[in-house]
């Protein structure tokens, strides 16, 4: 007999719950089966491929990704969560406006099948937000991108276009880096 849990959370800015849930429910199942947020992709189910990465916001500022397939609602109860559905903004008419990371992925043709893309978007978003709080020297950007995206597996395009897109966003957004990029390296 599995116990029950009284679950509440902020998901994409919306208050969710209280919901009476099985205490061993994994977050990806809550998102897909209970809340119809199907953008978070279940792939390996073992926390290895990061396709299901979602963002958890720290109340003290800061954010991190966790794999929704192996992170239980028991851990996320009471927390503030963002999924791929919550990344784009809205214009005055309520139309979606892609985030700089999402826009860069499109412009760089970063993905084909897109199955891994929500995870890459969330990881890159967390990275950009971290650099907003704590800029890093330009020469460290590639290492930072590698570290942030390394846990994410893509089986279509390889990784170069994802990496280039994130590099583009970071180097062209004021305030994320310290120092200057050599002219030859500056993205077009």
């Amino acid at each position: 007999m599995v116990g029950r849990i009284n679950f509440t959370a902020s998901i994409n800015g919306q208050q969710v719950g209280p919901l009476d849930l099985p205490e061993d429910l994994m977050m990806v199942e809550l998102l897909q089966e209970y809340l119809n947020l199907t953008g978070t992709r279940l792939s390996c189910g073992q926390g290895v491929c990061s396709a299901c990465a979602i963002i958890v916001d720290d109340p003290d500022g800061g954010s991190r990704t966790v794999p929704a397939c192996i992170t239980g609602v028991a851990w996320l109860n009471g927390k503030t969560v963002r999924t791929i559905e919550g990344i784009a903004g809205r214009d005055d008419q309520g139309n979606p406006v892609l985030s700089p990371v999402q826009q860069a992925f499109l412009e760089h043709f970063s993905f084909q099948c897109s199955y891994c893309t929500p995870g890459f978007v969330n990881a890159a978003t967390v990275l950009v937000e971290r650099l907003e709080r704590a800029p890093i020297p330009v020469e460290d950007v590639e290492d930072a991108i590698l570290k942030a995206l390394d846990p994410h597996i893509c089986r279509c395009t390889g990784y170069v276009r994802y990496y280039q897109a994130v590099r583009d966003v970071i180097l062209s957004t004021p305030g994320l880096t310290i120092g200057t990029v050599a002219a030859a390296e500056r993205p077009a």
């Binding site: 926390g47 192996i70 992170t71 851990w75």
Partner: peptide, 23 residues
């Protein structure tokens, strides 16, 4: 118990049974 279910059980199972060749 809550921490175990939230962070560990996804791979190691509710009852610590694990998964062959992975956890």
């Amino acid at each position: 118990h809550t921490l175990y279910l939230g962070l560990c059980a996804g791979c190691h199972g509710d009852n610590g049974q694990g998964q062959p060749h992975s956890s």
